[in-house]
Structures are given as structure tokens and as C-alpha cells.
Design a protein around this nucleic acid. Structure first.
Lengths: 159, 159
DNA sequence: TATTGTTATACTCTATAACTATA
DNA sequence: TATAGTTATAGAGTATAACAATA
């Protein structure tokens, strides 16, 4: 069972990761918005996705996705194809330029990370990845519990 | 030595933590900006800090800190005292209300985390905290190396 | 002359609401 | 009527540059 002390410590460490990722993203050689970059990477990992799926994945509004995708499309980094099963929706996929850019970016970050972790063993890195993946699973499970059993006020949106 | 594969995996996991922290912050019972909240927590952890120190800590511009602190001061959550050793600078500290609010928030998040990790052992949590702390250390060390030995183009700011 | 902090301005990211077109 | 996506508008967060006061 998790103690308050160990949770407080973990909280600090997790917050710290925010600064780290921010620094990584800021120094990335990409002439476009950080949000667009994030979408490109997601499309590279997951393959074609609908607008709504992207919105759900990042928990941001569809309207925001709509504008970012429009921007990426204008810059020839993604392409849209109509969903043959539903005339309302679209699939977004990486265009050739987008694929190239995304691969370059990922290579860049992987090198950065490898250089950062040059005194770590592979086992240690895998250990950390595993714990983070498990943390994510636990977090999602808790959210599902709360959503199904809403004794807490509400999702409490604007607070 | 870190392999490309393990780094790629870790990269995905670290990005994931961004979404998690965003969800945590969004559901927090705080009637104010997320940025202000972050500053309050930092002041609670570190004690009185100068404006410039806050800017450096979060790697954002002094002008931004200036406006957030002005807002928090207006809402009686922080207080400013002149630095007796340097007439240009100010110390920012939690006001009584700010101290109360900060403690309530931290208690809330600790409970949230404890509920999330109810099937983790304390040792596992401490293990994860330790690896994250070490990651942060490695990351900072790499940045210092690059800064002192700038064979890469430059800090590459606007990119 | 350099540094601490402020103000003015503009850009990025996001949310809300009103809209369209399909289902 | 419900849903997928768009557009308009507003708010939060940040960076840049010009500035005041102090070192």
C-alpha cells in the first residue's frame, strides 16, 4: 500500500518530468508548432486516425484538432481522406513529407536520449519504462473507477 | 550503454506522463490559473524565492513570472518583500492564505496518487521516484555538457 | 555598463458556443 | 435527434522588446 510520503516524493519527480519534456521539445529542429509536432508523432506511431480519435487521445477539444490538422495539411505534412463508412468523418494520415519529418525528429530525440543516458544500462532504462507504463495503467484504471462510481462531485471541469 | 530501442520506448512513456500530469492539474480544486498554482507549490517547497529564481526554475521569461506573481499578490496568496541586499530585487513568499491553499492542494493530490497506486508497494514507488530523480540528474548533466562544449549549432532558441 | 524587474505587444494553445452536413 | 467536424471568439500562457531603477 502506498504511503503518503512516497507519494509526495513521486509527485515531485513526476512534475519534474514536465520541465524535462518541455526542454526537449523546445530544442527540437522543427519549424512549426509544438502541437503540430505532437500530432505528427502520434500519426507516425498509430497510423491513420480520425479527428475525433486524435482529440480523445490528447484530451483536447475537436475544434483545436481541426485547426492544427488544417495547418499541417496546408504545409503538406498530413493528408485527409474521407471515411467511406461515414460521410461525416475523415481519416488523417502522414503525407510523404510528414513521414520524413517525423522520422527525422524521432531519430533526433532518440540520439538526445541515448546521449543523456550514456551511463545507464539498458536494463535500467527498460525498468524505468516498465514502471512508467504501469503507472499509466494504474492511473487510467483509477479514472475509470471514478467515472463509473461518481461519488466525487463530478469531473469538475472548469476548476 | 543505452540502445536506440530502449530509448524509443522510454520516450513514449515519458510523453505519456505529460497527459497524466495535465489530467491531474485539470481536476484540481483551485480557482485560479494552473501557472499560479505551480508557483505556489514551488514556493511551498522551496521557501521565499526571487522573481528571477522562479523564472530560472521553470525556464520561462521573467516577464511571465512578473505577471503571475502580480496576480497571486492581488489575490493575497503571496507577499513580496524587498531584498535588503539588492534594491532591484524582491523576495516572494507564501501569504497565510497561500500557505493554506497550497497545503490543501498537496493533500488532495497525495490522496489522489495514493488511490491510484493502491496496488503498488512502497518499495516500487520509491524505486520509480529514484529512477526519475536519476533521469533528471542525467538530463541536467547532459545539458551542462552541451552548454560548455557547444559543438552543436547553438541552444537553437526559436526552433 | 549590466542586471532586476515591469509593461506593451504579439503569438501559441485551448475551450466554448454556434454552425454545417451527414447519420 | 445525435454525431463529426468547422468556424468565431475569448481566455490562458509564453516570448520579445523596450523601459525604469538599481548595482
Amino acid at each position: 500500500m502506498a504511503s503518503e510520503d512516497s507519494c509526495a516524493e513521486l509527485l515531485v519527480r513526476l512534475s519534474d518530468m514536465g520541465s524535462v519534456m518541455k526542454a526537449v521539445k523546445r530544442d527540437l529542429p522543427f519549424t512549426g508548432s509544438r502541437a503540430g509536432l505532437t500530432l505528427l508523432v502520434a500519426l507516425g506511431r498509430c497510423g491513420p486516425l480520425r479527428m475525433g480519435e486524435l482529440a480523445e487521445m490528447f484530451e483536447i477539444d475537436q475544434s483545436v484538432i481541426s485547426r492544427h490538422v488544417a495547418d499541417l495539411e496546408e504545409r503538406r505534412l498530413v493528408e485527409r481522406t474521407p471515411n467511406p463508412r461515414d460521410g461525416r468523418s475523415w481519416y488523417v494520415r502522414l503525407a510523404p513529407d510528414g513521414k520524413r519529418v517525423t522520422e527525422e525528429l524521432l531519430t533526433h530525440v532518440r540520439h538526445l536520449l541515448a546521449s543523456t543516458l550514456d551511463d545507464w544500462t539498458d536494463e535500467e532504462i527498460i525498468e524505468l519504462s516498465g514502471l512508467l507504463a504501469r503507472f499509466r495503467t494504474s492511473f487510467d484504471a483509477r479514472r475509470a473507477r471514478v467515472a463509473h462510481n461518481p461519488r466525487t462531485p463530478h469531473p469538475a471541469k472548469g476548476l
